[in-house]
Simulated scan of single mutants.
Amino acid sequence: MTPAELAALHAVAMRIPRPWSATEFADLLTLPGVFLVTVPHGFALGRAVAGEAELLTLAVDPAHRRKGLGARALAAFEAEARARDAVEAHLEVAADNAAARALYARAGWAETGCRPRYYRVTEGGAVDAVLMHRHLGAG
């Protein structure tokens, strides 16, 4: 997927955090350790450095949700992180994103903390970020 395609999908899939631009995706993809995995109608963007991975974002087109694509993208992220020698993984998710939190929990991710009022929303409020962790094991 091109940065423009990533941005277009992110724009329809995300409310919190705000969707990222094509320029932001292009810039991220040039950074050391950053990797992209794709599934039909979705993707996961991550980073793996020094034995740890971070899921930067995961997006699935809303018209194609509830078909296991999010789980496939997450599994692909985890596999690529392992291939890059990551043994631990981290992510953050909006506290009010029940579907994503359930997806991560089903995949073995555990909630480890909270960043109060981390995400700003257009209505002027803020939403907590839930921190999650998963042990990936040896690569």
Score class of each variant (00 low, 15 high):
Ala100Val: 06
Val87Ala: 12
Glu88Asp: 14
Tyr104Thr: 07
Asn97Cys: 12
Ala98Asn: 06
Glu92Trp: 03
Gly113Ser: 06
Ala105Tyr: 09
Thr112Lys: 00
Val93Asn: 10
Arg106Asp: 15
Glu92Phe: 00
Asp85Met: 01
Ala94Gln: 13
Arg115Glu: 11
Glu92Leu: 03
His90Ile: 01
Glu92Lys: 04
Cys114Asn: 03
Val93Glu: 11
Arg101Lys: 14
Arg115Cys: 03
Trp109His: 04
Leu103Tyr: 11
Gly108Gln: 09
Ala89Arg: 02
His90Asn: 05
Ala83Lys: 03
Leu91Met: 13
Asp85His: 11
Ala110Gly: 07
Ala95Lys: 04
Ala81Thr: 05
Glu111Arg: 10
Asn97Glu: 12
Cys114His: 04
Ala98Gln: 14
Trp109Asn: 05
Val93Met: 13
Asp85Arg: 10
Cys114Phe: 00
Cys114Lys: 08
Arg101Leu: 15
Ala81Lys: 02
Ala89His: 02
Glu92Tyr: 05
Ala110Ile: 08
Ala99Gly: 10
Val87Gly: 12
Ala100Glu: 13
Glu92Met: 11
Ala110Ser: 14
Ala89Lys: 01
Arg82Ser: 03
Cys114Thr: 14
Arg115Ile: 08
Ala99His: 13
Ala94Val: 08
Arg84Lys: 10
Arg115Gln: 14
Tyr104Ser: 07
Asp96His: 02
Ala86Asp: 07
Arg82Thr: 03
Ala99Pro: 14
Arg101Gln: 13
Arg106Glu: 15
Ala89Gly: 10
Asp85Val: 01
Glu80Asp: 15
Ala98Met: 11
Ala100Pro: 12
Leu91Thr: 04
Arg82Gln: 12
Trp109Pro: 08
Tyr104Val: 09
Val87Arg: 14
Tyr104Asp: 02
Leu91His: 05
Ala105Arg: 13
Ala102Asp: 15
Ala86Gln: 08
Val93Lys: 04
Ala86Leu: 10
Ala94Gly: 10
Ala98Ser: 13
Leu103Cys: 10
Glu111Asp: 11
Ala81Phe: 03
Arg84Trp: 01
Arg84Ala: 00
Ala107Gly: 09
Ala105Phe: 07
Ala89Trp: 02
Arg84Phe: 00
Ala95Ile: 06
Arg82Glu: 07
Arg106Pro: 05
Ala99Phe: 06
Asp96Phe: 01
Leu91Asn: 03
Tyr104Asn: 08
Leu103Asp: 14
Ala110Met: 09
Ala89Glu: 03
Arg106Leu: 12
Glu80Asn: 06
Leu103Arg: 05
Ala102Val: 10
Cys114Arg: 13
Cys114Trp: 01
Gly113Thr: 02
Ala86Phe: 05
Asp96Met: 06
Cys114Gln: 11
Ala95Glu: 15
Ala102Leu: 15
Glu88Ile: 00
Asp96Leu: 05
Leu103His: 12
Ala102Thr: 15
Glu111Ser: 13
Arg101Trp: 12
Arg101Cys: 14
Ala107His: 09
Leu103Gln: 10
Ala100Asp: 11
Val87Lys: 07
Asp96Val: 10
Ala95Met: 04
Glu80Ile: 00
Ala99Gln: 15
Tyr104Cys: 09
Val93Leu: 08
Ala81Val: 06
Gly113Cys: 01
Ala99Ile: 11
Ala107Asn: 07
Arg115Gly: 04
Gly108Ile: 11
His90Pro: 00
Arg82Tyr: 02
Ala105Thr: 15
Ala95Thr: 11
Ala83Pro: 02
Glu111Val: 04
Tyr104Arg: 09
Ala95Pro: 12
Arg115Trp: 01
Arg106Ser: 15
Glu80His: 08
Ala100Ser: 14
